[in-house]
């Protein structure tokens, strides 16, 4: 029913207006990340810091990228682990 109402009122989610908006949102995730590679570099450094509290990782083998499928963009991180720490340190501890 709501779907029907939405349709007469021009709000169905498949309207070309909504499709346009969604496509833009996705493409801009890539554009903005591509225009400032510093963003991903800085994210990498922060990730290394956080993860090092829990495990020893291979920093050179670390790979962070954006991966897009049909209707979403995912942040994909491949982080080779060398060793787990027996005792972990958290900020709050």
């Amino acid at each position: 029913m709501l779907d029907f109402i939405n349709r007469i009122f021009g709000r169905e989610s498949s309207s070309s207006r909504n499709v346009a908006k969604e496509r833009l949102r996705l493409v801009l995730v890539h554009d903005r990340a591509g225009v400032s590679p510093e963003l991903l570099e800085s994210l990498k450094a922060d990730l290394i810091n956080v993860i090092s509290n829990y495990m020893e990782i291979d920093e050179d083998g670390l790979d962070v990228s954006l991966d897009s499928s049909e209707n979403q963009v995912a942040l994909v991180a491949n982080i080779p682990v060398k060793k787990m720490k027996r005792k972990f340190e958290t900020e709050s501890a």
């Binding site: 021009g10 207006r17 909504n18 908006k21």
Partner: peptide, 16 residues
């Protein structure tokens, strides 16, 4: 066109 769902609205564009 916006009204008929066939064009992005000002709000859509500003939000993006």
């Amino acid at each position: 066109m916006v009204k008929h769902g066939d064009m992005m609205s000002i709000d859509d564009i500003i939000e993006i």
